[in-house]
């Protein structure tokens, strides 16, 4: 799987929120979009997810143009900042939702869906909590359920929108490791949106630093530290 983001631009009410953003995400890679609020990182993630249509530019998935493909047809698993768990469904129903809404022909049978949900519950280390409701879970548990729900559809790509921002510092640290671990085990490429450079440096293979709707620099944590391309990147990284 290779996703190529090509010269994406987006304006809201005349203001440019994304300008000519290009980046390539390779198979199994963990990429962070790092920048201050208003830098366009969440908009770029929403364009990739299909929730927002760009004004210009292209998205290529293994060479195929998916720019006009609806969000549901892209099969990208998304974890929202608020987790957006379905509050009236149990944990198991939440995780199984993406399996259940498939057209009849593509859908696993009931037993197959239940087995898949059990497998995912075990993977997020919550094997006995399938009957709980989201409101009965801690923030960290909710985040893991959101991960499992996104992974249930065997996504081509995992999209993480500030998934740690609602957690307290201690939980955040331990969850960073487990999210990275989960992503490696499943072998899915992931894009993480964050404003926290420590977080980006800890989990990402490569980081795209964003500012004012542009991608200022893309590189590994070592490359960014060794050779910041612009004064903004330099300032943003040393401010930590």
């Amino acid at each position: 799987m290779t996703l190529t983001v090509q010269s994406i631009s987006k304006r809201y009410d005349g203001a440019a929120v994304l300008q000519d953003a290009s980046i390539t995400i390779r198979d199994g890679e963990f990429v962070a979009l790092l920048g201050p609020s208003g830098s366009g990182k969440t908009t770029l993630l929403n364009v990739i997810s299909g929730l927002v249509q760009p004004d210009a530019g292209q998205l290529l998935l293994d060479g195929r143009d998916i720019t006009a493909l609806p969000a549901g047809a892209r099969r990208f698993g998304m974890v929202f900042q608020s987790y957006a768990l379905f509050r009236h469904m149990t944990v198991a129903q939440n995780i199984g939702f993406g399996l259940q809404v498939l057209p009849r022909g593509d859908r696993l049978d009931k037993a197959g869906r239940a087995a898949k949900v059990r497998e995912l519950l075990a993977m997020i280390e919550m094997p006995d909590l399938g009957d709980r409701y989201p409101a009965q879970l801690s923030g960290g548990q909710q985040q893991r359920v959101a991960m499992a729900r996104a992974l249930a559809i065997d996504p081509a790509l995992l999209l993480l929108d500030e998934p740690f921002s609602a957690l307290d510092a201690k939980v955040r640290h331990s969850l960073r490791g487990s999210v990275r671990d989960l992503q490696r085990r499943v072998g899915v490429a992931a894009i993480l949106v964050t404003h926290d450079q420590a977080e980006a440096f800890e989990v990402a293979d490569r980081i795209a630093v964003m500012n004012g709707g542009r991608i200022e620099q893309i590189g590994t944590p070592e490359e960014l530290r060794a050779a910041p391309a612009t004064p903004f990147v330099q300032d943003f990284l040393t401010a930590a």
Binding site: A71, R74, R75, M78, F80, L85, F97, V101, I153
Partner: peptide, 13 residues
């Protein structure tokens, strides 16, 4: 809208 968006990305019509 977040729950509806989540359902959309999970493939619901």
């Amino acid at each position: 809208e977040d729950e509806e968006k989540a359902a959309l990305t999970l493939g619901a019509n």
